[in-house]
Design a protein around this nucleic acid. Sequence first.
DNA 1: ACTAGGATTGAGACCGGACTCACAATGGGG
DNA 2: CCCCATTGTGAGTCCGGTCTCAATCCTAGT
Lengths: 365, 365
Amino acid sequence: MSSNGSRRREITVADVAKAAQVSKAQAARALGNYGAVSDDVRSRVLAAAEELSYRPNELARSMNTGKSNTIGVIVGDIENPHFGLATRGITDTAKKSGFNVILINTDEELAAEIEAVQVLLDKRVDGLIVAPASSVETHHLQRVQDSGRPLVLLDRHAGGMEVETMAVDMVDISRESTRHLLQSGHQRIAFISTLKTETPYRAGMVLDSSQIADRLDGMQQAYQERELVFPADLVRLNAGDAESIRRITREVLLMPDPATAIVASDGLIALSIVEAIQELGLAIPADVSFLMYDDFAWTRLTTPPLTVVAQPVYNMGLAAAKALIRQIDGLPPSTPAPQFTATLVRRGSVGTRKCAETPAGTTVP
Amino acid sequence: MSSNGSRRREITVADVAKAAQVSKAQAARALGNYGAVSDDVRSRVLAAAEELSYRPNELARSMNTGKSNTIGVIVGDIENPHFGLATRGITDTAKKSGFNVILINTDEELAAEIEAVQVLLDKRVDGLIVAPASSVETHHLQRVQDSGRPLVLLDRHAGGMEVETMAVDMVDISRESTRHLLQSGHQRIAFISTLKTETPYRAGMVLDSSQIADRLDGMQQAYQERELVFPADLVRLNAGDAESIRRITREVLLMPDPATAIVASDGLIALSIVEAIQELGLAIPADVSFLMYDDFAWTRLTTPPLTVVAQPVYNMGLAAAKALIRQIDGLPPSTPAPQFTATLVRRGSVGTRKCAETPAGTTVP
DNA sequence: ACTAGGATTGAGACCGGACTCACAATGGGG
DNA sequence: CCCCATTGTGAGTCCGGTCTCAATCCTAGT
């Protein structure tokens, strides 16, 4: 149907040069806008290029400039609006600076992340932005730095590495929000996270994720301030799919000394927890208080609106890309290093609890 | 700190060949697993490669195989969970087949889309998946096909082009959901969309988006079935940012003969509409009924849960990637072509309206 | 022993731009 | 009028792989 009689061959500088009756070198100069080219030659070349609708092969160009104008982005799950928003920040900045983005999901699997890093390195991306699945196993990230390629981390720190990281201080905000819950009379606070671990949580356990570890630290600090014992039995990890989240939620709410408040570690998990609470016929915040990480728009639409920890996710993505591009351009990190602070947005899902009361349907042992 | 004494140079086949004391060609064969290689040579080469931690340069490889193992994905806005989910479907399939994904946002701007197509073509992606911003201006998409590169459309059709498209039949589902609203006694149904147009909507107007055009078609059909006049004055486009959405919502609800039901054209817009309704102090569904496109998890958490049009977005992404990869592999489109149907999920946000009644706070003229 | 025919092997040509280098042409200053 | 600085130009190399081709090695058949 279409007008191309010839087979697959694409137009190259050589073709343009022939059409303009100059040497390949001259054509390349005129096209690439470098070196010395007479006006006559330049116009002939550009005309020929236009005529043949020539387009440079970026692959070839990349190969001998060593720059692919591409950055690799490795996130846990693009389906999670948290990463969607961060990715948006990254792509916006990248586009502005003429970079493209190759995106890889890891499903928070370390193995997938290691492979992703390798693939992107092989593709010779100019730099990498990674939201690392593990803060402990950082061998592959180290290798990125060893290879001399710029690297910026997002959301989570990597233990022992000197690398620019765009993340909020989770200890602070977690301490603050736990204080809020404690002040509201809650002492049995459950923390539910998708983080995968070999064994159930025990106090003092070393966690793979700096983010979760920091949040638990913050909680513990808030408990210590009041000289209360942190209820480690209410820390529930491995809340993978909707079903297990539901099960865990029922567990912490129906156990003998049940949780009176639940903290959801991210927006996706929050959905299933709230559903489970509603299924149990419990009311927020009358029967159980609720607090979640990430301030998505829909949290304002529930009844009551949900109390959340808002993180400047978009800006973190923006800053990560900016920092990476600075590194790519050989510039030093911008000083002072950008700081990101999460804020506790108090809406209606945390309620005051009278100390003596026990939840409906349970008995004091 | 790290152990590399040498400058930037990466390890190449030539280095491996030298170390293994064979020719470049032999090393390449052993590494690439093609041609005839003796066991002795193979093991020496692999050992040397391991020793030097050699990694092939994918750029160079792509350049002379002509395959980049990369597909380009162009969407309106990755921040929109609709596209987040679709992208997830695409990346999952791509990864399974060994492809990477370059992602570009267009903000639904045609100009950005045209440039994105060009950039990806220049990068020699093996194929493109596009959610086209316009169903009318398809010149750039045509050019993709002319260049012989595989192309699959997502979500929206492109007028007059023969191209595989993964989308639901919007006319059908729109007719069905409009019927539902009409049966519930609503005749003043507002339709609010972000679609950008030069002028406000008029009956019979040609729209840039097949999706929106189809939805309006479906609505009109449902009205015609009942021999009712379709209220074109309640079709509101250009609902760009949260502020304009709020303004429009107020307009249609506070006008003399106000809307008694609102249809939100996507999940993002829905958030602002519901907020605006709540701000007006109106209750869903008592005062105004509400229906939205896209079945996000949070729609089950509002009070009442929202009635939605669920689209198999993830599967559409999956199928788009599958179809594209088939094209890349030179296979014919799978038959029968995959069909996607949206379903109306009736939850609580559409209420029955007694015909004679007028909404609280308004008077019959 | 001698050779046909397959298995191995190395040299070098590509892919498509970027860039170096040697050389020609122009032209301004002394 | 000559010399050197400044363009303008084409030939050719390089990037790091893939792949062709001809040469060489080996082994079995006669």
